[in-house]
Design a protein around this nucleic acid. Structure first.
Lengths: 110, 110
DNA sequence: TACGATACATAGACTCTATATGTATGTCAA
DNA sequence: TTGACATACATATAGAGTCTATGTATCGTA
């Protein structure tokens, strides 16, 4: 589906933005991204968990073990302060590139 | 400056979009990207030329040797049909991710 | 002659996704 | 009781690609 570069570029900002709305866990993040993209972004757990681990190691998010309503173990992730800072920076950079791309796209229909 | 993932994700769509406006050469592409981003996107030739070579190898663009007004050699690049197709797909994917990110961003100020 | 801008090229260290594979467990139907 | 499916997290490796460094080349200007 998506080029791996775009997956790489968007994973962290998407995760940070989702966690800004409240703590979540891996499986739910995958579901949320799928829903919000109308089923077009299909992250795998094999893609997601290494990213979550790396973000945790970098101090952007933190994890705690919890349990679901039915007793199943879950690892809940939430934003740390550095994560909020990173999210703002990600957004700024994304919008920078977006504005250049959108500007070029607009010029194509002049 | 920019995270390498975002550089990776945006290089090809930016190059394709620039070449859609007319053939160009390496140094000018670097200048154009810098100008359109208000000086914030500073590609190096060491980043750009491997990307151009790869795109050429993939049949997205083609190259021809030419000369500048002052006699200096230049390698001019232009879009091939596959490049136009790739550009449309890049744009579609970019807008997909952008819409999810923008939706999340909007929700943060509700 | 030296410097800066212009112009293209390539190699290696390092990073990271896709893919594969693994373990675990709750619900539901047969 | 068993099997299938959904749910839930984990990790390794092949392969791809950027950053950084370094290289050669050449035109204009001081």
């Amino acid at each position: 589906m998506l080029r791996k570069e775009l997956v790489a570029a968007s994973a962290e900002p998407l995760i940070l933005s989702l966690l800004a709305k409240g703590e979540s866990y891996g499986y739910a993040i995958i579901q949320e991204v799928k829903e919000r993209s109308g089923g077009k972004l299909n992250w795998t757990d094999g893609m997601l968990y290494p990213v979550l681990h790396r973000m945790e190691n970098r101090g952007l998010i933190k994890a705690r073990w919890g349990e679901s309503e039915t007793g199943r173990k879950r690892k809940y992730y939430s934003l740390k302060k550095d994560g909020k800072t990173a999210m703002a920076k990600h957004h700024e950079h994304w919008m920078l590139v977006h504005s250049v791309l959108a500007g070029l796209k607009k010029e194509q229909y002049v």
